[in-house]
Nucleic acid binder design. Sequence first.
DNA 1: GCCAACGTTGGC
DNA 2: GCCAACGTTGGC
Length: 154
Amino acid sequence: MAYWLMKSEPDVFSIDDLANRPQKVEQWDGVRNYQARNFLRDQMKKGDSVLFYHSSCKTPAVVGIAEVIKEGYPDHTASNPESDYYDPKSTPDNPRWYMVDIRYVRHLEKPVTLSQMKANQSLINNELPLIQKGSRLSVMPITKEQWQIILSLE
DNA sequence: GCCAACGTTGGC
DNA sequence: GCCAACGTTGGC
């Protein structure tokens, strides 16, 4: 089983929104970055664990846990002209963008903040992608060690 | 294939 | 709101 970290802006979609969804499930649409797309399409597997991270907000932090319940499939928002995520270069025959479905597992007892993680020597030594300079990926793989260290901070 | 211009991300 | 870092676009 693999481990992932996924970013979301809480003003757009928060861990509470996920918890309040029917079945607690959300389609993770709107990813428009090739490296992240490749992870969604090729590597995320049913049963993988996800850290849910709030970005672009007052206190950026890991706030909860989710799991992958449906593996990569075409992101239909790319072919919807009404969608903010519409991409005319993506076609149903040759979809450019992919998404997965995730299901809420739980909130962290206490969010683990970005500043906490940046100050953690184990995470620095382990080169957690989130705290690398210039890291902008919205979907990133993390190791079991990184997963355990982050949860030990909760 | 290079690279300047532009757009986006996301912390601060 | 600022700006550094990064990704994409498109002319040449």
